[in-house]
C-alpha cells in the first residue's frame, strides 16, 4: 500500500508553459514512481516550468528528496524550472541538512515563485 499523496494541478494565468502542482500528503519510497510519472508527463506535455506547492506536504524522505533533485535537473535541461514554495519547517529541515537548498529553487510563497518565472 502506497503512502498517501495527492497531486492537484492548477494553471498559472499568463504562463502557458507553467503548471502549479500542490503536493498533499507524504512523499516517500512507496509513491515516488507515481509522482515521477505524473511530473514527467507534465514536462512531456510542454510544461517546462513547474511550481510545486508544498503547503500540504507533511513528509519527505531521502527517496522523495532524490526525485525532487531529479525534477529540478530535468526542468533545467528543458530550459525550464522546478520551483518549490510553502515548504513546512520539518520538510525544509530535511532538505537543508543535506545541503540541497542550494540545488533547489525554494520560495516562501507561491506568488514569489510565479514572480520569479522568466
Amino acid at each position: 500500500m502506497e503512502s498517501q499523496i495527492e497531486l492537484e494541478y492548477e494553471d498559472i494565468k499568463g504562463h502557458a508553459d507553467t503548471k502549479m502542482v500542490r503536493f498533499v500528503g507524504d512523499l516517500d519510497a512507496t509513491n515516488v514512481e507515481t509522482v515521477l510519472e505524473k511530473i514527467c508527463n507534465l514536462f512531456n506535455d510542454g510544461f517546462i516550468n513547474i511550481i510545486a506547492d508544498f503547503k500540504k506536504l507533511r513528509y519527505v524522505n531521502s527517496t522523495g528528496l532524490g526525485i525532487l533533485l531529479h525534477f529540478s535537473k530535468s526542468a533545467k535541461e528543458k530550459n525550464g524550472s522546478f520551483k518549490i514554495a510553502n515548504v513546512n519547517e520539518n520538510v525544509y529541515e530535511i532538505i537543508e541538512i543535506i545541503g540541497a537548498t542550494t540545488l533547489l529553487e525554494i520560495y516562501d510563497e507561491v506568488d514569489e515563485a510565479i514572480a520569479a518565472l522568466k
Binding site: L65, G66, I98
Partner: peptide, 23 residues
C-alpha cells in the same frame, strides 16, 4: 558527492544514511 549523484540517478543512494547521521 551524493547530492550530485542523487540528481543524476533519479535515486537517493546514500542520502538516507547521511540524513540519519545528521539527525
Amino acid at each position: 558527492a551524493r547530492l550530485a549523484d542523487a540528481s543524476q540517478e533519479k535515486e537517493s543512494r546514500g542520502l538516507g544514511l547521511e540524513i540519519v547521521r545528521l539527525l
